[in-house]
Design a protein around this nucleic acid. Structure first.
Lengths: 131, 131
DNA sequence: TTATCATATGAACAACTATTCATATGTTTA
DNA sequence: TAAACATATGAATAGTTGTTCATATGATAA
């Protein structure tokens, strides 16, 4: 059971009828928001990071990189997409430090840059596989 | 060090020059993709889930719900947004089973529905706070 | 150098999304 | 019942994003 020791925010009277007809937001709630809410920039960065995971092409790229270090054209061939599309997505993954790259001759090999990638995706899979 | 026992996918010769000029995709890579890549629908669902986390308004809602069960109008007031905007986002969070709701009189109280929410966001924060 | 292969990238376009506005639904109180 | 309050939702719009196309950059081989 989640939230077992989390209070419901109500008005002073403690019933639902006083929930929303007060002009001032409940002080308790404001204290919570002010003390536990991350900074604006961190919230933005967090959303930005999850946006990167929110595209099935990038997810597929990550699943390939879970198993091997692969060059761009092989990724494109394996995922049956154009080199350009893959390259654009790799750029986003790299900007967000989820993958790293290494040039070897004409090819550029990509691999995972961060252990959190596996954890985050694993937790996501667990979530969607419930029921 | 990540990827310490993960092979680089190459051509038969094992050098970079044979990486991409083969007509057929490397068999080893195809085997990996076929055996470890989740189903199309799971990939789609995964991306869909992370899209939900990819918006700072929804992230802020979740941070409030980390601490308390809150009704819609209090969420709107605390986050300084319109009731309609919050309600639309709560709908998305609920559809993806990240929050649950409970009616009490005129108010509807929202709370976290799943422990994975905390884990996923915690991992995200760890990632962006590195360096 | 020139040709070729591998990758990166800017521009354009179509598809998607978050917010706003107006309004509908649901609940309580008078 | 009617009025007021809390929430939900459809439509419209502005902003964002993923792919394609054309082309530029970088590296190797002839």
């Amino acid at each position: 059971m989640i939230n077992e020791n989390i209070n419901t925010i109500r008005g002073v009277g403690g019933n639902a009828s006083e929930c929303c007809d007060t002009v001032e937001v409940h002080e308790e709630l404001l204290n919570i928001v002010n003390s536990t809410m991350p900074e604006e920039t961190e919230l933005y960065d967090l959303a930005e990071l999850f946006k990167v995971f929110g595209d099935s092409t990038r997810i597929r790229i990550l699943f390939v990189l879970f198993e091997a270090e692969v060059c761009v054209c092989d990724l494109a061939a394996a995922l049956n997409m154009t080199q350009s599309a893959i390259s654009h997505q790799l750029r986003i993954l790299k900007q967000n430090k989820l993958v790293k790259s290494r040039r070897e001759g004409k090819s550029v090999f990509y691999s995972l840059a961060d252990a959190h990638v596996r954890t985050i995706i694993a937790q996501g899979r667990e979530h969607i596989e419930e029921e």
